[in-house]
Write a protein that binds this DNA or RNA. Structure first.
Lengths: 346, 346
DNA sequence: TGTTTTTACTAACACGTGTTAGTAAATCAA
DNA sequence: TTGATTTACTAACACGTGTTAGTAAAAACA
């Protein structure tokens, strides 16, 4: 019942009748050192019998490595709640870390909070940091980077040369709008996922503008409305568009969640999707397939983002350089009935 | 640029002109030891100047504690993806841990995978484990528990006396169905959130049956259909109910996601909610408020679950006992337009 | 056989910390 | 003034591991 005393390599050595050094050599498969088959077997047997597992603290102390990644979520709790991708990103990080023998230490840091995350590095809890949701006013991450700490951003920080992994949102947005153009739409509106002060919001709008430009369509300022993560904001923005002077025949909404509200607005206005208004979302949240109608959207490689971020920060930790400081992962257009009616339903 | 050599307590001692012991005493505010104000100031100054932070590994080694919780997700990646609550639960764990000076080590373990999580404990990476999604066939957790390792389940494991934190799903389901009964419904169907082999599924069905029994309503087997986490399953189950011999006037669906598919089925059948079919969901996912119509549902204290689990496992770690081995957190009925029409819309 | 190389190990150190036991000086009690 | 106590520190040990330098025995070489 009481936590049985942990056995140490000394216990194993004693039971096997060898020195502690030999135990270490056997268990770590050390090359360049020769151990007779007989003693090797004896040591392994003793280790098994004593249920020996080397203590992480002792190991860390001597190696100087913690074999642990810090995954820092630098978002407010509300944002974390709303983010449907976080589990996938986290899982991607977890998987990449596990395959390379790393652990993942999770830390949520409210941006309003002054209590930062540098302690993780300073006290050697982690060998490197993945920072999700980097902020402009965060000087902590810059300081760590300058000190040579392995750091990887999940998302971008303009005007800095920190290595990052991000989704190519501009390209994704462009693809979304091009899809609408190819369907023959000329008057295409946009609702952003968030206020334009956010980088991710700007990128998506830029993609929208670029697509219009490529097709020689005019971008009318009145056709761009701001959302703020919520369906409510989509509902309102869509109403403004529908009641505006130039009603669009199609809308690109840079967030599926925001699109959910917009769909409601369209239906309340007595209009049909996609006949009266076609709609493309962004994110491909799990439920998008089951919107009414199913939402055409841009799928993000959330799992892949986490995977890549972890892989790369581990590369930095191991002293291997990076081929490039930036990774932009591509998105995928998922066509469903909110833009094309004739699809068969699952 | 190159990672500056970490400074140790020895460096601080040298700079301040005292012994390493004194440094430790000053920095740990050790009671019962007297240090003159002058030297204290000198030590603190030296520590600050050298940017000294005590090394976690050294500290762990001597204390035997890691001050870290293991949060083990014992679900398949697909389940993790689908689980909209996970971020909240994780945040709850994080917050409780942080407030008590603990870190959180996250580990996802695919149930199919033989590579377990006991290593976290065996190697002393963590002082205790929170296991989310415990499985019947998991003997690893039982062994740890018997060895006296601090363990806390997030969810229940029948036929075991392991301490757990869970939501009172039966009570929540009962509340949901009672709400329908109070609205005058007599023929109330149910669609489960998952196959009945899952504990959480059974609990919700039991609550449903109990509510019917309390109101002297007959529970007809044909009115219970199984869902499997997906909207598609809800779509199909709802169609079966609508085409069945006794069409229900109300449905309790033990998952908002599954309910999303069911709503589609109702609408495709040309019926109105709530006039023709009233519906109550379960979970209160963020989007439930923006379903069409907004979904009446049962809100789960996801954040609170994580919070409680972490608090309690820390209590175990610190050797304080638990008042009770089990915590069942109560749910909350959120009434929206899928059961009551006359509400004003946000 | 005598010398060199290889094999199979071990003693001793280092990692950075917290803590117990001990000491000299300063203060207090009488 | 003398003995007892308190103050302000320090030397030394312990935590459990990986690794370098070293050694005796065995094997290989000539």
């Amino acid at each position: 019942m009481s936590p049985a005393k942990r056995s140490t390599s000394r216990d194993v050595a004693k039971l096997a009748g060898v020195s502690r050094t030999t135990v270490s050599f056997v268990l770590n498969q050390n090359e360049g050192v020769s151990i007779s088959a007989a003693t090797r077997k004896r040591v392994l047997k003793a280790a098994k019998k004593l249920n020996y597992h080397p203590d992480a603290a002792g190991r860390k102390l001597v190696s100087g490595k913690s074999d642990t990644l810090g995954l820092v979520l630098h978002q407010s709790p509300e944002q974390v709640f709303a983010d449907a991708f976080l589990p996938r990103v986290i899982l991607g990080v977890e998987q990449a870390a596990m395959q390379r023998g790393f652990h993942v230490l999770l830390k949520q840091v409210d941006p309003k909070d002054k209590n930062g995350y540098a302690r993780l590095i300073r006290e050697n809890h982690v060998d490197g940091i993945i920072l999700s949701g980097p902020r402009q006013d965060d000087d902590e991450i810059l300081r760590l980077y300058r000190e040579g700490v392995p750091v990887m951003l999940l998302g971008q920080l303009p005007d800095s040369n920190l290595p990052f992994v991000d989704v190519n949102a501009a390209s994704g947005a462009q693809t979304a709008v091009r899809h609408l153009i190819e369907l023959g739409h000329k008057r295409i509106a946009m609702i952003t996922n968030a206020p334009l002060s956010y980088t991710s919001s700007q990128q998506r709008r830029d993609g929208y503008l670029q697509a219009l430009r490529s097709a020689d369509l005019e971008a009318h300022p009145g056709l761009i409305k701001e959302g703020n993560y919520t369906p409510a904001s989509g509902y309102q923005a869509m109403n403004e568009l529908l009641n505006g002077s130039l009603r669009p025949t199609a809308v690109f909404i840079a967030s599926d969640v925001v699109a959910m509200g917009a769909i409601l607005a369209v239906r309340r206005a007595g209009l049909r999707l996609p006949e009266d208004v076609a709609m493309v979302g962004f994110d491909d949240i799990p439920l998008a397939e089951y919107f009414d109608p199913p939402l055409t959207t841009i799928r993000l490689p959330a799992f892949g983002l986490g995977l890549a971020a972890a892989e790369r920060v581990i590369q930095l930790i191991q002293g291997k350089g990076l081929d490039s400081n930036e990774v932009l992962m591509e998105t995928e257009l998922i066509v469903r009935e909110s833009t094309v009616r004739n699809l068969t339903h699952a």
